[in-house]
């Protein structure tokens, strides 16, 4: 029972981390909470669902389609909605409010065009559970966990090892200086949104399989936002650790206490963190010496 809960908690945490990464990437560069990210995740889930159910294509193709589709939607989002504000050097509050508007708009577009149905993914992972030390572990949980950790680790390597990744980290500290070094900021911001969208698409498919696909599923990103705050907004390792902590906490509370008060625990944790450690576990404390 304990092991099963642990794996379930970690897999939910992994999905939270996938979503939180998108928030953190955007926050680290533009310093605002991109509340439209949840709707991008939702749209990614729809894309994945329709590829697999309407076109009868395989699961890997649906995953790739969702990743590419969500990445492109995120790019469209920044080009159409945020770029005019960024170019005018608007305060980040304006960007956040615009993001909320984009989110409401897209969600209602889905209501109007696709309706409020709940779509369930066809069975992809076999129901039969893996037996492991006497516990039942679902293949879905296991693959969600593996996928999220591997892809986030790949992103980490990209940010640490490549020139472009270094430029993203540099710009997250000082955009003006990065442009002095020859970084085309418009393009870099586009790349950051592509990455965030791709991770959103991945998260969307796993969320859709685990729960269902419906217009307001994007609101579950509230949890990812909590994960990002716990870990420290703008920090990638923070997003992962925050996601895993939250996933474990929720699952253990559901199993050992009661699932109805699960959210009380997660939201209390945010409050506690904001009071005691406002920058999160791995938030930025770096100060330049003058």
């Amino acid at each position: 029972m304990f092991l099963q809960t642990l794996v379930t908690g970690l897999s939910i945490g992994g999905i939270y981390a996938l979503m939180a990464v998108g928030y953190s990437l955007v926050f680290s560069i533009l310093n605002f909470s991109n509340f439209a990210h949840g709707t991008i995740i939702m749209l990614g889930a729809y894309i994945g669902y329709f590829i697999i159910s309407s076109f009868n294509l395989s699961f890997p193709l649906s995953l790739i389609g969702a990743v590419l589709g969500a990445a492109l939607l995120a790019l469209l989002n920044v080009e159409l909605a945020y770029s005019p504000l960024i170019n005018r050097r608007s305060p980040s509050l304006y960007l956040m409010i615009t993001a909320m508007g984009v989110s409401i708009f897209l969600e209602n577009m889905v209501y109007v065009t696709l309706g409020s149905h709940f779509y369930a993914f066809p069975e992809i992972f076999k129901q039969s559970n893996l037996k492991f030390f006497g516990s039942d572990i679902s293949p879905l949980d296991l693959s969600a966990l593996v996928f999220s950790l591997v892809s986030i680790y790949a992103l980490h390597l990209f940010l640490i090892k490549t020139k472009l990744g270094t430029a993203i980290r540099a710009a997250s500290y000082d955009m003006t200086t990065a442009s002095l070094n020859g970084v085309n900021m418009t393009r870099l911001i586009g790349i950051v949104f592509l990455l965030a969208g791709a991770f959103g698409g991945l998260a969307g498919v796993f969320l859709g399989i685990k729960y269902m696909v419906y217009p307001t599923m994007g609101w579950i990103t509230n949890k990812a936002y909590i994960a990002a705050v716990i870990g420290g907004l703008g920090s990638l390792p923070g997003a992962v650790i925050g996601g895993l902590i939250l996933g474990l906490l929720e699952t253990f509370v559901s199993v050992y206490i009661s699932s109805t008060i699960r959210d009380v625990f997660s939201f209390s944790m945010v409050i506690i963190f904001l009071v005691i450690l406002p920058a999160g576990l791995m938030g930025r404390h770096l100060e330049e010496k003058v």
Partner: peptide
């Protein structure tokens, strides 16, 4: 870039 190492800072100079 205070969040980058000295070497990474220098390499940012060679970005292009």
């Amino acid at each position: 870039y205070a969040n980058l190492t000295v070497r990474e800072n220098l390499m940012m100079g060679a970005f292009l």
